[in-house]
Write a protein that binds this DNA or RNA. Structure first.
Lengths: 135, 135
DNA sequence: GGTTTATATCGATATATATTGATACTCTAT
DNA sequence: ATAGAGTATCAATATATATCGATATAAACC
């Protein structure tokens, strides 16, 4: 028979209950969940959504290709557009996402805009992603 | 007056034309675009979409939090669910995305499933993303 | 000035993906 | 076997985002 009543409405309560059965001790289960919750508080303090913005920026087929193109050096919008065979508005949109996320920098020269990779960490990040790719 | 006719329908042709005006030499512009196109061919050979899958897996608020939780060590689904206050089906979905992408590994023990980070490269990748975060 | 050109932005649509509730699967214990 | 529990999967919906065409902005040239 069930040792402890689990009538809570919150998701947490269900989990405490499950964990109680797993560990065989509800007290310890509650303590464990409290620890995890405070760990989440710590994580929240580290601005995870800022990190998500950076990751989302490269986590797109088109934008990843742009970054890989820029490895060679600065390119103007029309070059990127041609290389990827994407329309101008689409290319421009992707570049602005990358710029917003701080992955690339823009340099204006007259009518032309040139883009380049903002920081070495960008390629380092990709290197790690590629390590994970095929495992 | 325009030195070269640009009536092509492909995106590439427009770009060659623009670039020709920028460089002041259409021949060189065509060569440049050809070089970039072959660079793209090289990039395609590197399985960029595999890399995108890895990046997409972490580029989500919920999944990033899961990874950060797992930094402490192995957790079972009910613990993750409680910590993030997400429903079971949602939590399970995110874990399967992370597993598919090779970022976490699963260990089954009876009814329980435990997840852990698959490779040190995961945290290294995040570290680089965090470097880029606030610039 | 007006025109052309390079890029950015906008509104509409299409596509992808997160979430939810329900159901299925699987293990354990009775 | 049957029931209960932990997890996975499914179908429907909601939300986010990529793409497209059109337009706006801004610079260069006549």
């Amino acid at each position: 028979m069930p040792e402890w009543v689990c009538g809570g409405s919150k998701i947490n309560d269900d989990a405490v209950c499950s964990l109680g059965r797993l560990i065989g001790d509800q007290q310890k289960a509650e303590k464990r969940i409290r620890e995890l919750s405070s760990l989440v508080v710590t994580i929240e303090g580290e601005d995870p959504d800022g990190t998500v913005e950076v990751l989302k920026a490269v986590a797109d087929p088109c934008r990843l290709r742009i970054i890989k193109l820029l490895k060679e050096g600065e390119l103007c919008v029309c070059e990127i557009m041609a290389a990827l065979d994407r329309r101008q508005s689409s290319t421009s949109h992707h570049l602005s996402v990358l710029k917003e996320a701080g992955l690339v920098r823009e340099r204006k020269d007259g009518k032309w805009s040139y883009y380049r990779i903002a920081d070495g960490a960008v390629m380092e990040m990709l290197k790690q992603a590629e390590v994970l790719k095929k495992k």
